[in-house]
Amino acid sequence: MNTKIDKAQVRRVAQLSRLELSHEEVAQFSTQLSAIVEYIEKLNELDTEGVEPLAHCLPVHNVFREDLPRPSLSNDAALANAPEREDEYFKVPKILDDNSGA
């Protein structure tokens, strides 16, 4: 069986993706993603030496907005879809480690 992407890799990627996959899913994705990635590697046939990567199809630059205030949402509108709220806040189970990366 093709295991270009073995279960350990699937678990690593699932962790990065914040997906708590079942054992079945891990096995299934290992097989399916391996097949897909295998196919994708057709790209290596091509010599792309000196080819510019194309992230945007449009040749557009310098799109800005002026520094002008626009109305914000009310606190209730902002929290209207919140699964859980406490007073004016979004509520989540306690955050332990400070993982922020700014």
């Binding site: 205030p69 626009r70 914000s72 009310s74 606190n75 902002a78 007073d87």
Partner: peptide, 27 residues
């Protein structure tokens, strides 16, 4: 010290009531 946020028109504010300076973009 801009008037508004970097990617939307919400005004910058310090110590204001929580979640009163948000919009679909910054949410």
């Amino acid at each position: 010290a801009t008037k508004t946020k970097i990617f939307c028109g919400c005004e910058l504010a310090y110590g204001d009531t929580a979640n009163t300076h948000t919009c679909p973009v910054c949410l």
